[in-house]
Design a protein around this nucleic acid. Structure first.
Length: 595
RNA sequence: GGACCCGUAGAUCAGCUGGAUAGAUCGUCAGAUUCCGAAUCUGAAGGCCGGAGGUUCGAAUCCUCUCGGGUCCA
């Protein structure tokens, strides 16, 4: 049984509708909503049932609404029902029913809002998946936070979530990494070869010249001495060292990435290697699955219209018929050198996720991969026979601002480029919260000054401040001692009848919405809704707090009225609990006091 | 040339998968408050939801076209 008030009364509405119109399809019933009202004068919740049923029943919405009113008036806990507007039915609840949200919160603790709507479906959420060629930079940050929060959110909504990181360790870029590390290795050995000479020697030219590889080269010396080089610290043939150096380098980079993720509070359960998936034959198996379905062919792509790449040459290659699944053109599976494209290996990787039990996949990508979505969905549909859906959440670019001016990412200028620098400057919590204050498909400005400002317009501060105020009240009550114990169990049993002011009831209503919000946000794959909900909740709480400024009798602790105080303490404790519940989804730690 | 994302108050953004009079913060204006529950508060003004068609009981939301901005395209 769900503890969600809106679900509970939706069932009553559905029962009333079924009794009235037995012939209504389940499909129509599924669209019946019971939602919070925006305007308190409309009661506590409203349903659109009459509007939806008008066509099926061939009656006016207002007439159906009238009948529904009569049926719903008899439901337990309903104080009043009224038809309104074009055919809405507004329901006003007995205040005690609303207040029952408080003991529900206090008993459930941070688990309040947990839902079964995900029905235990095994969903694989993949995010970050940065190339293991260097430390994480700020560009990775949004995807990391959004992915992590989305995974938490879906878990709270009742999905069985796997948090996954995909290691792109089979492509040309890790080979280039190996060469770059080998160069640092030779340097550590004191080579006389110049950087220019080594650059010329490297197949694709020396990339990844960043200083972060110097310690990796040194570590290589510590482990292998000069065994990977010719005498005199000269380069040895690629064959003799490439695999060793590449594996070593990738492992080191991955370690660094995991440290960065840990600093951000991101801890994925599964790290899957592209190279391993290849070695296991999963990729080949996936490709032959497509082959058997007749979805692969040798063909020639037309050159892109508009600007033509300089090195364009017409050539025959293995193509996937993604156009059959709504893509714009068929997509190549093999490069000119005969190796797999990233796309081909990604197909294998997604097949691997399915083989490991995923019933649903969500990938969180940067906006620069937007052009990749259609083909990947097409391939997943083909390779899984449409059984395992893939959804892609795209995260748009983040612009970092300081004093309202864009921060140029430049090592030379001393401005930061790495994720770690960002975390060091403003803190993990501010980074995470702020990254969730926009829907992910909108571009975002990240203002370094604002996110640490202790001002009303900084939602991080505003929400944390509300929590700190709650905790402060509870501490004071505890120290005073005359209000009895302030543990959740005790407060859950307190009579709440005296909570009846507008501000108090607004807060109660807001908390009653939390389970519903979790479900809706999870369904929409939109973790940012949690941040906005918490800002609203904090707003309700601050408003209540402010009443006590003008009128001391509205303060939470009333020595002359211990019963009322206990009820208010229950309200405060519940508020803190719901804030923590939301922050937990976002991966933000609540603070006990502001300093 | 094409694909994807965005366009909502002066600014920054929400808008709960199509619902009632489109919301919040900042800024502006008008009040309150030498308080310590003030790291302010109350209230007001402010809108062609980029534009034009369409779908239906009903559109910021869905469809088509179009204009801006951003990403990307073996």
């Amino acid at each position: 049984m769900s503890d969600c008030l809106f679900q509970r009364y939706r069932h009553h509405v559905l029962a009333a509708v079924r009794a009235m119109l037995p012939e209504v399809s389940e499909e129509t019933l599924a669209r019946v909503e019971v939602t919070p009202t925006r305007d308190p004068s409309h009661g506590d919740m409203a349903t659109n049932a009459a509007l939806l049923l008008a066509k099926v029943a061939r009656r006016k919405p207002a007439d159906i609404a009238t009948d529904l009113v009569a049926a719903l008036e008899k439901v337990e806990g309903v104080a009043g029902v009224a038809a309104a507007g074009p055919g809405f039915v507004n329901i006003t609840l007995v205040p005690d029913v609303l207040r029952s949200a408080l003991p529900a919160v206090l008993k459930a603790g941070e688990n309040y809002g947990d839902s079964q709507s995900g029905a235990g479906v095994r969903v694989n959420v993949e995010y970050v998946s940065a190339n293991p060629t260097g430390p994480m930079h700020v560009g990775h940050c949004r995807g990391a936070v959004v992915g992590d929060a989305l995974a938490n959110l879906m878990a709270k909504a009742g999905f069985a979530v796997t948090k996954e990181f995909y290691i792109n360790d089979a492509g040309a870029q890790v080979k280039a990494l190996a060469w770059a590390v080998y160069w640092r290795y030779l340097q550590a050995l004191g080579t006389t070869v110049t950087e220019e000479a080594f650059d010329a020697l490297t197949p694709t030219g020396l990339q990844y010249r960043g200083e972060y590889l110097i310690p990796v080269g040194e570590a290589l010396v510590a482990q292998y001495g000069d065994n990977l080089a010719e005498s005199g610290a000269n380069p040895a043939p690629e064959l003799t060292w490439l695999d060793t150096v590449r594996d070593f380098a990738v492992a080191q980079m991955l370690l660094a990435i995991k440290e960065d993720l840990a600093a951000l509070g991101v801890h994925q359960n599964v790290f899957t290697s592209e190279a391993q998936v290849l070695r296991d034959g999963v990729t080949d198996a996936a490709i032959s699955t497509l082959e058997k379905q007749g979805l692969l062919y040798e063909g020639v792509l037309e050159p892109p219209k508009g600007k033509l790449p300089d090195d364009w040459e017409e050539r025959e290659q293995l193509l996937f018929r993604s156009t059959q699944f709504g893509d714009d053109v068929d997509r190549p599976m093999r490069k000119s050198d005969g190796t797999n494209t990233y796309f081909a290996n990604d197909i294998g990787y997604h097949a691997d996720k399915v083989a490991r039990g995923a019933q649903m996949m969500v990938d969180v990508w940067g906006a620069d991969h937007g052009g990749y979505v259609k083909r990947m969905k097409a391939a997943v549909r083909a390779v899984t026979n449409d059984a395992v859906p893939l959804e892609v959440v795209l995260c748009q670019i983040v612009h970092i601002l300081r004093d309202g001016q864009p921060v140029k990412m430049s090592k030379r200028a001393g401005t930061f480029v790495t994720l770690r620098d960002l975390i060091d400057e403003v803190g993990k919590n501010a980074v995470r919260f702020t990254m969730l204050t926009r829907k992910s498909d909108a571009q975002m400005e990240f203002d370094l000054d604002l996110v640490v400002a202790q001002k009303r317009d900084n939602p991080v501060f505003y929400v944390q401040y509300a929590h700190a105020r709650c905790r402060s009240v509870l501490r004071a009550a505890q120290e005073d001692g005359s209000y009895g114990a302030t543990t959740p169990d005790v407060l859950a049993g307190v009579p709440m009848g005296c909570l009846d002011s507008d501000a108090e009831m607004a807060l109660v209503r807001r908390m009653a919405e939390w389970p519903r919000l979790v479900e809706a946000a999870a369904l929409a794959r939109e973790p940012h809704r949690v941040a906005f909900y918490l800002a609203d909740l904090a707003g309700d709480f601050h408003a209540l707090w402010n009443r006590g400024r003008d009128d001391a009798s509205l303060r939470f602790l009333q020595p002359d009225a211990p019963d009322a105080t206990r009820a208010r303490l229950a309200l405060v404790a519940a508020t803190a609990t719901v804030i923590r519940s939301g922050l937990a989804v976002m991966g933000v730690e609540p603070v006990e006091e502001m300093r």
